[in-house]
Design a binder for these strands. Sequence first.
RNA 1: GGCGGCGUGGCCAAGCGGUAAGGCAAGGGACUGCAAAUCCCUCAUUCAGCGGUUCGAAUCCGCUCGCCGCCUCCA
Length: 489
Amino acid sequence: MFKLYNTLTRKVEPFQPQDGNTVKMYVCGPTVYDYLHIGNLRPLIVYNALRRYMEIFKGWKVIYVQNITDIDDKIIDRAVTEGQDTVEIAAKYTDAYFKLLSALDLSPADHNPRATDYIAEMIKLIATLLDKGYAYEQDGNVYFRVTKFAQYGKLSRRSVEDLQQGARIAVNEKKENPADFTLWKASKTGEPQWDSPWGAGRPGWHSECVVMAQKFLGETIDIHAGGNDLIFPHHENEIIQAEAVTGKTFARFWLHNGMLTTRGAEMHKSHGNFVYAHQVIKKFTAETIHYFYLTRHYRKPFDYSEEALEEAKKAVWRVNNLLDNIEAEFSSSHIAKQDQTSEKSDSANSYRNNFLQRLSQLKQQYITAMDNDFGSVDAIAAVQEIVREANRFHIRATGDDRYALQDAVALIRSLGLPLSLFQRRERTEIGREEELLHLLIDLRQRLREKKDFALGDKIRQDLAQLGFILKDTPQGTTVVSTTQTDQLK
RNA sequence: GGCGGCGUGGCCAAGCGGUAAGGCAAGGGACUGCAAAUCCCUCAUUCAGCGGUUCGAAUCCGCUCGCCGCCUCCA
């Protein structure tokens, strides 16, 4: 049974899409005022993997919507400091955002609505809230009257009274209640603005997600996800707007990922303790980065460090090394065929069967882990276990039994697929390059047979410099290209 | 003040009532001309501390200590 932790109920609950086969999923996207930092990457990677798991292993069709917030105070500030207008700023960072997604091998969303394309719908929503008495206008500003909605606070589990005790609620004379939030903001001169029944201005932050989620996914969506820093006020304020209007549940499941920290402190632009995502991508592959995030449970905070990424790199390498070895063995014409044609003995057969049985056991372990609130950490542990088993089998199996290794490779690739791991076809392309490589390998083999190890080692060293790692295995010499992978020291 | 989370081996990190996964590191061994990789063995009688519930607790409850987040913008 597939289960997810729902912030709304604070419980792990069985999840099924509300209408048969289609999951309607909305993930809060970026405000495009700067490049993303690595903390921003966590929800992208985690929810992408969740989505793909639901598609590939559950067989559901996921409609995945992620907004782009392209109008906001931070964008206005940025426009001033960069000397451009807000449209240019938004375009620049939106473009960088999509480039990053692609570099990270993240599946594109089905829809990426931009806030400024939905101003009219937001105005309509706000007008409805005014009509129903959930909002009020003051000097061109419109505020939500939070006390009017009894369930306000049901997601974050706080009451309006709690909020009033908080010392950090901004004093605003225009509000009836300090906890009321802005739906429409009257613009100052020079700021971007849109016409509305309440004068020129721009929408508050929380309306856009409601409008865009409902536009693409309907009044009740299956999953709404984002960072746990959005629980309050952002998601709380979305719920109140949506449900005040429709009277229906806005989102059935609310998912929230934990924050990244740097030496224990939350990573935040304003703390200055962040690293840009594009900087990390220069040093590590997308695969290593995915592994890094997916080996920590998505709801817990965790500490970023380059050492931790180095460790992830090695762990990924361990898996790919096995895939390389086996694929090299099965595709290389240099391996003697006689090994693969011997008749099978009963004992060998049972050895193979045991191995295959163990593989399916570990596959089940992976699925159980993933089904249990996206336990990617345990799921990856199961893959590592497959690697150990396969390495063992690789050493000991003989004859036709060895073909079972191809099953192991296929399994690892299929389990890695939703996680964006272990997909790379490592073998160098068949072609002139490979012919040349094998010429060198043959030459080196002859030198080694003549005990001329000095020259043989030089060939190996020089090829390594060019990015081709030679390994002398019992099955012969194999070659792996490091051009597409993290190079180990 | 209110709401919430976390504390597991040298490090990272699962497990959330049935007797401690996985990775990295380290030590020993096998294999190898040397490498690389791989395999075998060792590496938490114990899960911050103290009580309680239970046949049984890292897992539930209470208290204490330590760290962190939200309550303003933040993924």
